[in-house]
Design a binder for these strands. Structure first.
Lengths: 209, 209
DNA sequence: TTTTTTATCCGTCTAAAGTCTGAAATTTTA
DNA sequence: TAAAATTTCAGACTTTAGACGGATAAAAAA
């Protein structure tokens, strides 16, 4: 029996989910919560296998609850069940420790499947969300220059135009020492050894144009 | 009366030209030659205003004759009359001092006109030849890097790849001082101030790829 | 609110880059 | 053959780049 806790601030939603899950033999609903805080306490007491967690709630968000739960019960599989799939929701949730990410457009059967897969350590991610996650991963291994700060990028483009530190200093109205600091940081981030290679980098990656 | 000498190693060509020119009031044929050497001697004696010169002849080329004539009679207008219009013929001829350049496909009237214009210090250049001359002039003001020597171009491409002087020195098996000399010359020829700008130049002009 | 990131700046120091002058050997061109 | 361009290298010198350590204030994120 898979012990499940359902968290959602809308009672009608909880009831719908619970009603269906109770028809599934392998699943046992051991508790329900209507807020993040409530959820944390409930999970601490019940130590469930799975938590179905809404993200947007009135008292305490699902992300905070997820973070908190992972702290004392890291093996608990938290399945996010929400209607949002924008960056601002998805990444923090996954970062917080969510195991799967479902949208409320998912069928009841999808939820059951996700619970079963969670017990087999299989993640489930909605297609719409998956693309976000992928681009998020790409964000991790993004091109060197994309991890530059705005100012550093400005300086880099100047280098790409063949400007000297002094010229950059004059153009951006900052001290030459500051320019040097930026240049050093840029070289480190790009993984090159001098400004000439940085300039080559700019052109090879078509950063100008 | 415009005093003209006709130079061509084919008697039939000379006769044809002379026959027509004799019908022109303002023109007087004062002599004819069948080789470059002969032409030089004839011109030295007769001091004509105009020389109609073939380029390809058996004894002594028209280019050499032209050069020689310009040495002792620089005001003499030498009109090249030939069937060739390739680079190897055109440039040496003009460089030697030819005043106009006609093709043998020109009409008799074109020749007369060229002679008259020559007396008014107007050059005549066949359209087909003109394009060569233009690109020749462009050759004078060709892209900076095209006036680099082979070695300098090698070094420049290394710079375009972000290499340091030491690395270039190692790669080309030459001293670092030599590299510096090349770099300085390159910077001067390209009109840039440092190697970074040189690298930018390389990429802007797509010298690599 | 506390912490982290960002943008700014200083001084010192070393290595690299670049200039200038001069020069010798080789190759190319006239 | 003579003249010009190319390639090579040297010494002395100046300037620029870049590394390293440290520091501060503002902005953004946790």
């Amino acid at each position: 029996m898979i012990r499940v806790v359902v968290v959602d601030d809308h009672k009608i939603v909880r009831q719908g989910i619970i009603a269906y899950l109770n028809t599934v033999q392998s699943i046992e609903i051991v508790g329900e919560a209507s807020s993040g805080h409530e959820a944390v306490e409930l999970v601490r007491d019940l130590q469930p296998d799975v938590v179905l967690m809404d993200l947007v709630m009135e008292n305490g968000t699902g992300v905070d609850a997820t973070k908190e739960i992972m702290r004392f019960l890291p093996d608990c599989k938290i399945i996010i069940l929400t209607s949002y799939y924008d960056d601002e929701k998805v990444f923090p949730a996954i970062e917080a420790g969510a195991f799967s990410y479902l949208l409320k457009t998912a069928s009841a059967n999808d939820i059951v499947e996700a619970i079963h897969k969670a017990m087999n350590n299989e993640n489930v991610i909605e297609p719409k969300v998956a693309s976000k996650v992928i681009s998020g991963i790409q964000g991790q291994s993004k091109k060197p220059h994309q991890q530059l700060t705005k100012r550093e990028l400005e300086v880099l483009l100047c280098i790409g135009n063949g400007m000297t530190n002094q010229e950059i200093s004059d153009k951006l109205y900052i001290g030459i020492k500051t320019v040097k600091t930026h240049v050093s940081n840029i070289l480190a981030k790009l993984g090159v050894h001098d400004r000439t290679q940085a300039a080559v980098y700019v052109h090879r990656n078509r950063l100008l144009e």
